[in-house]
Amino acid sequence: MAKVKGEIVVNTERCKGCELCVPVCKEKTIAMSSGLNSKGYHFATTVNEDCNGCTNCGLVCPDGAITVYRVKVA
């Protein structure tokens, strides 16, 4: 049972679709969207609810597009 629950918010306009956040996510929460942002990049998006808020994706994102949230689940 998970002790923490995380969530990420991707600034889709800032994301350049470099995909560096995908391999660092141990929970395989991040994938690239099929849609495009206004610059024509496939932006990062969440595909499951396993995020534990480890901040790995935020740390490697060169454009600072990811905000990470984390709460403790009792």
């Binding site: 995380g6 470099c18 600072g64 905000t67």
Partner: peptide, 28 residues
């Protein structure tokens, strides 16, 4: 419920301006 300002553990620093970085995707 999770996406609340008090739960933020990582966000872009306010000392970077809102300009889009001119670097290629994935650049260090």
């Amino acid at each position: 419920e999770i996406i609340a300002p008090e739960n933020i553990v990582y966000e872009r620093t306010c000392l970077l301006t809102d300009c889009a970085l001119s670097y290629c995707p994935g650049c260090g």
